[in-house]
């Protein structure tokens, strides 16, 4: 397998949650949590995923891990379709691991730290003695002295220490991809920076790829090679982090980035780029999902949903206004004409 092939390819991944209602418990409507998203994760890269709550970030993470079954779409890992005979679920899960936001509830409170970390390798057939040896090496590597921490229980550790344990546990099965779902969001700011540094070091040392999901746009810019912007279950924009942050092409990405506090008392934000809240993912607007809040909205945006299209090198956008020859004209101009 050459290095040019992506580590993971996601095609048309879809998950709708039915909402049951009425006396017979029929499905009355659906939450379109993830609606046909496709992207690659390259080798050795960090792919940042940003978007507002309810846009499907966490559902995507769970679909990637196969913690919930997709309604449609497939995942190809290392050139092999996940779930096929070439890539069984067991072998897939030893190569892809996940770290969650809540560092305490993701550990078993009745297992010591070392038992939690050594659990995964033992499931995958490593002898207990070797698994414990590996655990101690990893605890040491993530900055927890094994002599002090290995025999302790989760409630004895702080949030930052627990998240280090979760990272060690993810590493214990020697994965190639780690999905980090808001993994630093619950930590104190000063501790968050320590964990981000640790993640960067581990990535180099073990040749890992990350899918880094966060609502914190500053952190995503810092850690990501490429960024994927999600809006209501769809990919709005995907490109290199520096390109997306310097010149966002999708009007939603642009609005999201301009909502970031500047941190500069002399250049405060004067006007909110978006009004109102994101629409409910149950009653989606027709056409482009963003058209109800979009400053560039045109007639075609209400009727046709834009597909993700390449507009520059390594830069994909799903917006009629940005796709040359789409026939899009902003309504503000149509009215003037």
């Amino acid at each position: 397998m050459s290095d040019a092939t992506p580590l993971m390819t996601v095609k048309g991944l879809t998950k709708h949650f039915p909402i049951k209602g009425g006396m017979l418990g029929r499905t009355v409507s659906r939450v379109h949590a993830v609606d046909g998203i496709s992207f690659d994760v390259l080798r050795d890269e960090t792919l940042g995923v940003v978007g507002e709550s309810g846009c499907g970030k966490s559902t995507t993470a769970r679909l990637l891990m196969h913690l919930i079954a997709p309604d449609a779409g497939e995942i190809i890992f290392d050139g092999r379709r996940v779930g096929s005979r070439d890539m069984t679920m067991a072998s897939y899960r030893s190569q892809v691991q996940m770290v969650f936001q809540d560092s305490y509830s993701s550990l078993n409170p009745r297992l010591t730290i070392q038992d939690s970390v050594a659990f995964g390798p033992q499931v995958h057939g490593v002898r207990r003695r070797d698994a414990l040896q590996r655990t101690h090496d990893l605890l040491d590597r993530v900055g927890l002295d094994p002599a002090r921490f290995a025999a302790r229980y989760p409630h004895e550790l702080s949030g930052g220490q627990l998240q280090r344990v979760n990272i060690a546990r993810a590493l214990a099965v020697r994965p190639r991809l780690i999905i980090l779902d808001e993994a630093v969001s619950a930590l104190d700011k000063s501790v968050e920076a320590q964990v981000l540094n640790l993640l960067a070091d581990l990535k180099k040392e073990f040749g890992l790829a990350y899918v880094f999901i966060s609502h914190d746009l500053n952190v995503v810019r810092y850690i990501s090679d490429r960024v994927l912007v999600m809006y209501l279950g769809r990919v709005a924009e995907l490109g290199r982090a520096e390109d997306v942050y310097a010149a966002p092409q999708h009007p939603y990405s642009a609005a999201l980035l301009s909502s970031m506090p500047t941190g500069d008392p002399d250049r405060r934000v004067e006007k909110a780029a978006l009004q109102g809240d994101p629409p409910n993912p149950i009653d989606l607007p027709g056409g482009c999902r963003f058209h109800t809040r979009c400053p560039l909205v045109g007639t075609m945006c209400r009727g046709t949903e834009p597909e993700l299209a390449r507009i520059a090198r390594d830069h994909d956008v799903a917006c009629h206004a940005r796709i040359p020859g789409s026939g899009h004209r902003p309504e503000s101009k149509e009215r003037a004409a």
Binding site: S158, G160, D188, K189, N197, Y222, G263
Partner: peptide, 25 residues
């Protein structure tokens, strides 16, 4: 000083380590 160093835009330059405050609150 430490709080601002680990947060502000200028501090978060790619490939550079973040300045951190050691330890925990």
């Amino acid at each position: 000083i430490g709080l601002l160093k680990s947060r502000t835009h200028d501090a978060m330059v790619k490939e550079h380590k973040l300045d951190t405050i050691p330890g925990a609150p």
